[in-house]
Design a binder for these strands. Structure first.
Lengths: 340, 340
DNA sequence: GCTGGCACTCGGTCCGCGCGAGTGCCAGGC
DNA sequence: GCCTGGCACTCGCGCGGACCGAGTGCCAGC
């Protein structure tokens, strides 16, 4: 019906207006600013229906309407066209990310870029170790009974661990061990490394066995440790602006949750590449995020995302713009990682 | 004179009271809470003098007094005994930092620990590259014309760079190169590496020269890049509590300055090991920090600090406690790095 | 089914006032 | 000479009431 169609347009207008002005929006302002073709009175009727259906709400009796989480959800689901970034923005992305010198640098720049583009808090996850492949495994003797194991992945991550080896070890043995391990692991996905370990130990020369076992054990530990997934956060200053209005009380819990990382990592765990996920307000399980929205996407060229990135902000955010920015940055990061 | 002595005690009491209550402190409260042995009227006279000398000020006519930056400075300079941490706190530090698995982990834990102990924003600097020594230099061929150089330092930092080599290179040559570079650089301070490069190139076998030059150049670049010094920040949530009173307007600029890192790094550049530096309010050059104080110290066992760490908070902070915490954590971090 | 009109609601803001904490000063006492 | 108690004064803060205006819901008319 033309009826329903107009109501959708009203909802959309309410969201847009509220997002840009941060004031509850009334029927009159709506009629004036958006070309809805009907009078304020009609809009009021539509708004009454929208409110009954739970898409909008009034902060108090004599105020305008504000979208609910459900309203934002509806709005986001009907976002027909993602507005593409402007040429200037594309240029900015390129300029910002080119010249990055290593993984740390790429992700650091990405997070700053994303924070700047969206004016929200940006989060970028390091490529998940278990989905990365071994590029090289280096062993540096620290003493006769301790080795430094350095793992270098094809995504550019470098992890180091000290391995206590059960027997005294000489330089030649270390070299043998290094060759053996690299032959076995180079090119292999870390997620599948555990399968190889058993055979590798069995087939190794006897004098190497305990060493292979020790190093392999450390390698596998690395994959389950909390440091497996790391996070870079930036633009937290963006929380401290209009936010007194956006977040109830202070935004302290939100900052705490972000620093905690676990919460965000859990959200990230679900993202797939190329499909942007939007999680709105109460949809977030963690309490500190119930007033926030999270826009995220995976990056990486394959079918499985290497990691995720996204932005966190008030539910009252520019979803279209943020989705576009997040997607663009993810694509670019994916390219950069594939190159190196 | 007994006169001056009492005034000092009055100032000290004002600082302590204001720090703990966050209310301008009046003569009566002072007389009641601190055993100064004189009546409020006398204290009023002392306060008038202290105000004239610029150590304290009144927010408005009929309010109590608040310490000025100068007052805090005086207070800090006369901090006779740094109160040692409680046994429980020492235990907590140990428990928190032990079990750290690599440098990233050590610093991440330190920053969380420091933020928790002081309830301020904590910053920890990665060990400066140029003051670290080479533990190992690894080269991984990416293609015949590109090498991945991985630098591992004795402080646990790992840096990686892609080196474009001028000539096609085979595995044997890379091995030769690796041996050569490690023989030359292992154990050397990176700050002194540039001295060695010239000789090294000259003395190398002809077919290795361009390679040595290329890798060395990249190595030296690593030392001047902005990534030379890195920073971990934590506890920003601590800004968002009583802080509406502590920072004029919002603390947005402060958060921005912290994320910018440069400002903090400049402050850190001056710290020496074992001497805690306190920078109060207007003493900080950067505008965003003029309402904040910065307590910092270098860590590292030698005479030159490997890096710095500290806390940032409102000028109204517990200087004695924060100095103690910062010092204790720095000492512990120093030990941990020396061990590995 | 849309529109203009109208009465009503209610949060935000402004104003005026009283309270009380805190001060400076002064005269008197150890 | 320095400390003390007393006293008059100042001024920010909090409270309550009144006003204002944006916005609503409803209704009669087109």
């Amino acid at each position: 019906m033309a009826h329903d169609d107009r109501r959708l347009r009203v909802l959309r207008a309410i969201v847009q207006d509220y997002v840009s002005t941060n004031d509850p929006v009334g029927s009159k302002a709506l009629a004036a600013r958006y070309d809805l073709g009907v009078s304020p009175a009609t809009i009021r009727n539509d708004m009454a229906v929208l409110e009954e259906e739970g898409y909008i709400t009034q902060p108090h009796t004599s105020a305008g309407r504000v979208p609910t989480d459900k309203g934002y959800r509806f709005f986001v689901d009907r976002l027909s066209a993602i507005k593409p970034l402007s040429a200037a923005e594309r240029k900015a992305i390129e300029k910002f990310l080119d010249g990055a010198v290593d993984l740390h640098d790429v992700l650091g720049r990405s997070v700053r870029l994303l924070a700047q583009l969206t004016r929200q808090v940006a989060v970028v996850q390091y490529p998940t170790l278990s989905r990365s492949a071994v590029r090289h495994l280096e062993l540096v003797p620290l003493s006769t009974s301790r080795l430094l194991m350095v793992l270098i992945t094809d995504t550019g991550r470098v992890e180091q661990r000290v391995v206590e080896v059960p027997v005294d070890t000489e330089a030649d043995t270390v070299a043998e061990l290094r060759t053996l391990l690299n032959t076995a692991f180079t090119g292999a996905k870390l997620g599948e490394a555990s399968d190889k370990v058993g055979d590798l130990v069995d087939s190794a020369a006897p004098h190497l066995r305990p060493l292979v076992a020790a190093v392999s054990a450390t390698l596998l530990e690395t994959l389950v440790e909390p440091s497996e997934d790391r996070l870079v956060i930036g633009g937290t200053a963006n929380l401290a602006q209009g936010s007194a209005l956006d977040f109830p009380g202070t935004f302290r819990p939100l900052l705490e949750a972000l620093e905690e990382q676990v919460v965000v990592l859990r959200l990230m765990a679900e993202v797939g590449p190329s499909t942007v996920t939007v999680s709105i307000g109460e949809e977030n399980e963690h309490e500190a995020l119930t007033a926030a929205s999270f826009v995220s996407v995976g990056y990486g060229s394959g079918d499985q995302a290497l990691g995720g990135l996204g932005v966190v902000g008030p539910t009252r955010m520019d979803y279209a713009g943020n989705i576009a920015a997040v997607r663009a940055v993810a694509r670019y990061v994916g390219h950069l990682l594939a190159e190196s």
